[in-house]
């Protein structure tokens, strides 16, 4: 899509984060084009939350982090929206007070947009934030981030506490925002199906390192999947194998298609989920 735009909206290079003297992220490098919706995938503890927190300026980091072409910091903060895991908000404030605080703390705040989204989500203004159901609180947290009118939106597991109806509503809200404003979104999740159809880019983390990063179509096109019997195993020699998973009397193999995949097997285009699972299993093996 916008891969031909030279300057990415978000760029990390040799990005590392240490927590309590232990290195949690190692040399993370990726670029997100303007208007891209990126799935940040990985198992629990892979470093998704740490990466987002560091990108939001909540953790010190080493290496390069450029947002909208500028080094991260106070200058770009008004243009970055962040929603933390479990929707951190002041529990003692009411919904209305939370919105007022957002209006005072953000120069680009859009009260009209906030009002529209609050009404659509059916949030009561007088309700205390601490009394909201987790799903409702998450929606308020996302509304706070959207009313800030961000150019880059960082979301940590936004769908986790939502019921199925709220999930589709939130997906609709986010995608409408992308359509209308060209917002660049980075969205952490560990449920691949949740972001299917929403995301056009992927950053896959394993053990604090990037396993895969880029456009989803390119990533899927760059891999092939085959099922074979044990007798076909030799056919994999010379292929750039990501994972071979043995099954009953056979195997499933995922290979990168730098060289053409071996002809002896019937190769198929993997789904994003198959691709992601293969990388994650191979990384933890």
């Amino acid at each position: 899509m916008s891969d031909d735009v030279p300057r990415p909206a978000v760029l990390t290079h040799s990005f590392s984060v240490e927590r309590h003297g232990r290195r949690v992220l190692h040399d993370v490098s990726f670029a997100l084009p303007f208007g891209a919706v990126t799935a940040l995938l990985g198992r629990n503890g892979a470093g998704k939350t740490t990466l987002l927190r560091a990108m939001a300026g909540l953790l010190p980091h080493r290496g390069t982090l450029e947002i909208l072409g500028r080094p991260s910091g106070d200058e770009v903060r008004p243009r970055v929206g962040y929603v933390g895991q479990h929707a951190p908000l002041y529990r003692t404030l009411s919904v209305a007070e939370t919105l007022r605080a957002g209006a005072r703390l953000n120069p680009r705040w859009s009260a009209a947009h906030a009002k529209r989204l609050v009404d659509a989500a059916g949030l009561r203004r007088s309700a205390r934030v601490g009394r909201l159901a987790p799903g409702q609180r998450m929606r308020l947290a996302v509304i706070m981030a959207l009313a800030k009118r961000p150019d880059v939106l960082l979301l940590d597991e936004p769908f986790a506490p939502l019921d199925p109806v709220a999930r589709t509503e939130l997906a609709g809200t986010l995608m409408a925002e992308v359509a209308a404003e060209g917002t660049t979104v980075l969205l952490a999740t560990h449920v691949v199906a949740e972001v299917d159809g929403m995301c056009d880019h992927v950053v896959l983390l394993g053990g604090g390192r990037v396993l895969l990063a880029g456009g989803i179509d390119e990533a899927v096109d760059g891999h092939r999947l085959a099922v074979g019997d044990d007798t076909d195993r030799a056919a994999l020699a010379g292929a750039d194998v990501v994972e071979v998973r043995p099954g009953s009397g056979g195997f499933t193999a995922l290979v990168r298609t730098g060289p053409p995949p071996p002809a002896a097997l019937t190769w198929q285009r993997p789904s994003l989920e198959e691709l992601v699972l293969a990388y994650l299993r191979e990384d933890s093996a």
Partner: peptide, 10 residues
Amino acid sequence: AEHTGINPNT
């Protein structure tokens, strides 16, 4: 995008 929750680029 708003109605289906799919990426507008799609």
